[in-house]
């Protein structure tokens, strides 16, 4: 059984007003336990609306979201439980910090779950370790942290709920290159250790190519593609038509192939390309 499944999921903003807008249109998708899914799409393609429906923050206009086979809106009073199972990190999550100390802020989620104090303490420390916030920072005011630290503290606030599915909406937006790399590898590590499902919305093809197993492409409210990362990024033309692109290195390798080389399709990272070229040269005996 898929951990998340959507059936004809649609959402319309401002229904019955002159500002009516269809944001998500009949999306059918199945996400399996443990997958790392990248979600791409133009600004306004409906991806943020889509992910907010997955944890019941907004109610679909029509269609269903199934979590472990059960419709999440079956019992609207229980919707909070769904939010604990499907954790959501919004864009610029540092703007939602509010407590006196980082520790208290991270414990907000677990406290709402009604856990015992010792369990809360354990979860807060675990979450803080995942995002690499050291002990003394935990007792500082969140407003005294640096930008990157704030971001990580806010993400820890969601990790501390230990959700089965973690959704991150552009977690690296506005961070410097170093901060991006660190955060991304922390998310990866978290995914590997906990073996939970992660959905990452991002505009950076490089980021998505590096970490995800599968990619979901949204275009003008519709689900355009949903396939293995390699397969999606081998459709260069199609992606460019809808205003997206493939990672630079994938494009370079593709144009080398056009010029008569025969590198394998769907190379996604510089490291892969490096290895591929080395083996090629080695085979031809041109390396030394």
């Amino acid at each position: 059984m898929s951990i998340i499944e959507t059936r004809d999921l649609s959402f319309v903003y401002g229904i019955d007003t002159p500002f009516e807008k269809r944001a998500v249109n009949n999306v059918n998708i199945k996400i399996e336990q443990g997958e790392f899914i990248g979600i791409m799409g133009h600004t306004g393609s409906g991806k943020s609306t889509f992910v907010q429906m997955l944890n019941g923050l907004i109610k679909p206009t029509s269609g269903q979201v199934l979590l472990n086979g059960k419709d999440i809106w079956e019992n609207p009073k229980e919707i909070r439980k769904v939010r604990f199972q499907v954790g959501m990190v919004f864009q610029y999550p540092e703007y939602q910090l509010f407590e006196e100390t980082v520790y208290k802020d991270i414990s907000f989620g677990p406290k709402n779950m009604g856990l015992t104090d010792s369990e809360i303490d354990k979860r807060v420390r675990d979450a803080a370790r995942f995002v690499d916030l050291s002990g003394e920072l935990l007792f500082k005011s969140p407003f005294d942290l640096s930008g990157g630290e704030k971001r990580r503290a806010a993400i820890a606030g969601v990790l501390a709920m230990d959700p089965d599915v973690l959704i991150l909406d552009e977690p690296t937006a506005g961070l410097d290159p170093m901060g991006r790399d660190i955060l991304l590898s922390q998310i990866c590590q978290y995914h590997k250790q906990r073996k939970n499902t992660v959905l990452l919305v991002s505009h950076s093809m490089e980021d998505i190519a590096r970490v995800s197993d599968k990619i979901m492409v949204m275009n003008k409210s519709n689900l355009e593609m949903f396939d293995k990362t390699k397969n999606v990024f081998s459709q260069n033309k199609h992606l460019e038509e809808i205003g997206l692109r493939v990672p630079q290195i994938t494009k370079i390798m593709a144009s080398l192939n056009e010029k008569g080389y025969d590198f394998s399709e769907g190379i996604l990272t510089v490291e892969q390309a490096f290895a591929e070229i080395l083996t090629k040269l080695n085979k031809e005996g041109k390396l030394w």
Partner: peptide, 13 residues
């Protein structure tokens, strides 16, 4: 609206 959504995602009632 955004902040409310974010806190609701952390189980704020």
């Amino acid at each position: 609206d955004k902040i409310m959504q974010a806190q609701k995602a952390r189980g704020a009632d």
